[in-house]
Simulated assay, not measured.
Amino acid sequence: MTARIALITGGNRGLGRATALAVAENGIDVIITYRSHADEAAAVVDEVRALGRTAVALQLDTSRIVEFGPFSTQLREVLAATWQRDTFDYLVNNAGSAALTPLGQTDEAAFDQMVDVHFKGVYFLTQELEPLLADNGRVILTSTGLARFVGIGPYSIYASVKGAVEVLTRYLAKQLGARGITVNAVAPGPVATDFGGGRVRDDAEMRTAMGSQTALGRVGEAEDIGPVTAALLGDGMSWVTGQRIEASGGTLL
């Protein structure tokens, strides 16, 4: 059988790494991208290979649209050389960063960075790579629980842009449905990674406060989220599209 291939942006750490390992455990080969920290990306490649799957890491800054054309060309070359294919099956738009944006203290650069990496970059990368997606493939966008509830911290721009991502999810599902491609958004709640400077991971008081707001009584771990994305790539989810899947442990129900 032809190996299935997932491309996961920002796959060198956090949720991206957890997703790469989860999909590899489900028998899927992996291409991860990384903006920096090539050593981390190489370590993830080794972990995926240890699970018996093929893996490749490619450098990409998902906030820089000018890089997308050359990246697409490089991806075509990697697909041909490594898998003897001209398509891949699953695109997971995971890469991102967080910024505090309190009203009255937010500059245009911080605003633009949130838009560029979480919305503009996602849109144009998906547009660039859509011709390389196999029919009956999958696209996953990453949202956040903060698009539904107001959490701790001034994340208004980050959350608002993720709201736009959820609208984009539905439009992409409609546009790509004719090719059998499903499009869904995964919306994590508070997760203990290095995201946003690692505050949820490292600040015990914040962990306790956020955990108390969940039905399950704790904040999430990256390993709670990766398998959710992996499940959406599974054969049993082929009739699910245009949906927002929140994985937040029941935060602020």
Results as ranks from 00 to 15, higher is better:
residue 28 I to W: 01
residue 28 I to M: 02
residue 30 V to D: 02
residue 31 I to L: 11
residue 31 I to D: 05
residue 32 I to E: 03
residue 33 T to S: 08
residue 33 T to N: 11
residue 34 Y to T: 00
residue 34 Y to R: 02
residue 34 Y to L: 05
residue 34 Y to A: 03
residue 35 R to N: 10
residue 35 R to M: 06
residue 36 S to G: 09
residue 36 S to C: 14
residue 37 H to E: 15
residue 37 H to C: 12
residue 37 H to S: 15
residue 38 A to P: 11
residue 39 D to P: 10
residue 39 D to K: 15
residue 40 E to C: 03
residue 40 E to R: 12
residue 40 E to P: 00
residue 42 A to N: 13
residue 43 A to I: 00
residue 43 A to Y: 02
residue 43 A to V: 04
residue 43 A to C: 04
residue 44 V to I: 05
residue 44 V to W: 02
residue 46 D to P: 01
residue 46 D to K: 08
residue 46 D to M: 04
residue 46 D to H: 04
residue 46 D to W: 03
residue 46 D to C: 00
residue 47 E to W: 03
residue 47 E to V: 04
residue 48 V to N: 02
residue 48 V to D: 01
residue 50 A to G: 14
residue 50 A to S: 15
residue 51 L to H: 09
residue 51 L to M: 13
residue 51 L to S: 05
residue 51 L to W: 07
residue 52 G to T: 10
residue 52 G to A: 09
residue 52 G to F: 13
residue 53 R to Q: 14
residue 53 R to H: 10
residue 53 R to L: 08
residue 54 T to V: 09
residue 54 T to G: 09
residue 55 A to W: 01
residue 56 V to P: 00
residue 56 V to A: 05
residue 56 V to I: 09
residue 56 V to R: 05
residue 56 V to C: 05
residue 57 A to C: 06
residue 57 A to K: 01
residue 57 A to W: 00
residue 58 L to R: 08
residue 58 L to P: 05
residue 58 L to G: 01
residue 59 Q to A: 10
residue 60 L to M: 07
residue 62 T to P: 13
residue 62 T to Q: 13
residue 62 T to D: 13
residue 62 T to C: 14
residue 63 S to A: 15
residue 64 R to S: 07
residue 65 I to C: 04
residue 66 V to Q: 10
residue 67 E to N: 13
residue 67 E to C: 06
residue 67 E to P: 03
residue 68 F to E: 00
residue 68 F to T: 00
residue 69 G to A: 14
residue 69 G to S: 14
residue 70 P to M: 06
residue 72 S to H: 12
residue 72 S to Y: 07
residue 73 T to C: 10
residue 73 T to A: 13
residue 74 Q to Y: 08
residue 74 Q to N: 15
residue 74 Q to V: 01
residue 75 L to V: 06
residue 76 R to G: 00
residue 76 R to N: 04
residue 76 R to L: 02
residue 76 R to Y: 02
residue 76 R to W: 03
residue 78 V to L: 03
residue 80 A to L: 09
residue 80 A to E: 11
residue 81 A to M: 10
residue 82 T to C: 11
residue 82 T to Y: 11
residue 84 Q to D: 15
residue 85 R to H: 12
residue 87 T to N: 11
residue 87 T to H: 13
residue 87 T to D: 11
residue 87 T to I: 06
residue 87 T to P: 08
residue 87 T to F: 08
residue 88 F to V: 04
residue 88 F to Q: 03
residue 89 D to G: 09
residue 91 L to N: 07
residue 91 L to P: 05
residue 91 L to Q: 08
residue 92 V to Q: 09
residue 92 V to D: 12
residue 92 V to F: 14
residue 92 V to N: 08
residue 92 V to S: 10
residue 92 V to L: 12
residue 93 N to Q: 15
residue 93 N to G: 07
residue 93 N to I: 10
residue 95 A to V: 01
residue 95 A to Y: 06
residue 96 G to P: 07
residue 97 S to D: 11
residue 97 S to W: 03
residue 99 A to H: 09
residue 99 A to V: 09
residue 100 L to W: 05
residue 100 L to I: 15
residue 100 L to P: 02
residue 100 L to D: 03
residue 101 T to A: 01
residue 101 T to I: 04
residue 101 T to H: 00
residue 101 T to Q: 02
residue 102 P to R: 11
